[in-house]
Nucleic acid binder design. Sequence first.
DNA 1: CTGAAAGCGCTTACAG
DNA 2: CTGAAAGCGCTTACAG
Lengths: 342, 342
Amino acid sequence: MKQVTLREIANKLNISITTVSKALKDYPDVSPKTKSLVKELASTLNYKPNAFAVNLRTRESKTIGLIIPVIVHHFFSNVIKGIVAQAEKKGYLVIILQSNESYELEKKQIDLLMNQRVDGIIISLANGTIEYKHLTDVIKANTPLVMFDKIAKIVNCSKVIIDDRKAAYDATQHLIDIGCRRIAHFRGSLLPQNSIDRFLGYRKALDDNGIKYDPSLVYICECDDNSFEEGKENARLLMQEHNDVDGIFINTDLVAIGAISEFNDAGIKIPEDIAIVGFSNWFMSSIISPTLSTIDQPGVKMGKAAFKQLYKEIKLKKRNKPVEYQQIVLKTKLIQRDSTKL
Amino acid sequence: MKQVTLREIANKLNISITTVSKALKDYPDVSPKTKSLVKELASTLNYKPNAFAVNLRTRESKTIGLIIPVIVHHFFSNVIKGIVAQAEKKGYLVIILQSNESYELEKKQIDLLMNQRVDGIIISLANGTIEYKHLTDVIKANTPLVMFDKIAKIVNCSKVIIDDRKAAYDATQHLIDIGCRRIAHFRGSLLPQNSIDRFLGYRKALDDNGIKYDPSLVYICECDDNSFEEGKENARLLMQEHNDVDGIFINTDLVAIGAISEFNDAGIKIPEDIAIVGFSNWFMSSIISPTLSTIDQPGVKMGKAAFKQLYKEIKLKKRNKPVEYQQIVLKTKLIQRDSTKL
DNA sequence: CTGAAAGCGCTTACAG
DNA sequence: CTGAAAGCGCTTACAG
């Protein structure tokens, strides 16, 4: 089945391609009669404009790119859902790529998307991303760029984040409030801004409560595919090295769940022996035993907000208007469950 | 920053656009000297071919579409991962849409993708899909189509599936093997082929073992966003209506996890009072308590297989060769965990 | 109200 | 080895 073109419709009706095009787009300078004739034939022939030709002319693809570190991940799949839903409302399609936390892949994928002439890009950085030239290049090429969750502070573009520092502070304060005094932290990878901020929030809460910060209580997780195992491993180490710890604030739920599993196996009671707070509110956290206290991080909302901001910038750019970059900070909240109910 | 075009390079080097184009694509009839000159300038100017123009000429978009019922879903997000990874290897990008189990949305999304002139489409049907014209239209338009997991048997195209009937049979037989004699089934929505097949496998296992099939032991779940709650609800009903049941085979893990949670709350012992087998092997199943026996369904593999088949068909179509539709059946295996360890 | 013409940026059959 | 020309299918400024 060959695709129907404007020319075909024009020939069949013995009018010009121009008029067909204008009729279909409801230009005011086409007679109602012609319009209805054209529209009718177009629909019976099942005419679909060739997107390539339209894109080439209008220099718009109605497509955006999304790069995330991992797809199989409660938070990120929620973000995808938010972005895809919002984009569809505005007639945009979303190309999704997974960087696998690799800087090299991320660079290549930015390139792919720029080649594809997407109208804008939304990205959450890979843990491995150490330079930002690929991102500033996007901005230089005048392609709207929005970063979310794992951002680079120094890159000048719009960002959708939560206040990681405050959220981590709240989580740690909560542990202190229920009586913990020797509090460990399983932090994320060294580079990402959010794992830095969560660490800083943890430290600040200790300071403000007169608890001495002890670096040996901080364990690192890469938080890639192995999060669950990393949680188990760190829990094992912690038991060997510090049997006086009474609380842990953990960078992300999946790691926390690994830790819980290890403590359960070792016969350590949660929260009586060790209280635990996670981060992100994965669905799993509400069904493991004990249920896990955590910080709710609104994935779908973040996705929607990121697309909305990108959309604004795409529209502004189209009208050659100046863009003001926004830093959108969404609210989080502490969810108390059994892992901290003393 | 304006985008660099072939014309620009041609002008700067005082040669024709034709030659520039051919040089960049390593045509044999361009002198090595010209080639290196062109390539060097192209790279310093950071030339990127305009994908729209290329697509318009070559009638290829190097982009495929993927429609799935839900994104936030262990199995489907694994499939996404498999498809995206495999596609990238071959230089293809993936546009992802979520049908939300809605037939109407699914139709609209097929339309969107066809408009976008994707090179092929991979789809897992919505529960609500009752007609297949939108799918046969894709095939008529000569766009390669591959269905996976939730397929329509009567649509003539390639399919990637598991043997749902056998897997369900295995699961039910396992319950019988450990001594269950009064076995309920929480089935999926009525339309999808896979929930029909799983039901049939369940029934066959009962038959083969001389256990009378009792329709009142079959409960239905829509398996949409509420799966967990549906599991709880059905478990509640089951306890009221049939306190003699000693085993349940459940259509999908998330529903099974809801049921486990309800039984735990009600003080019913798993597996002593009721043994449970789920389906799909969600990560969660290995960490809840008791851990859940289930059928492993290879999401990433299915995604990869689906893309590979689609890719084959895209290539064959390009060479005007006939396509032979494949039905690819991937292996599943029963994973025994505590919920059936008597 | 209608249409001829230019042009978006490429690719490729063809001529020289 | 090089290049002029046609064409992919659309949009839109312009003329009538």
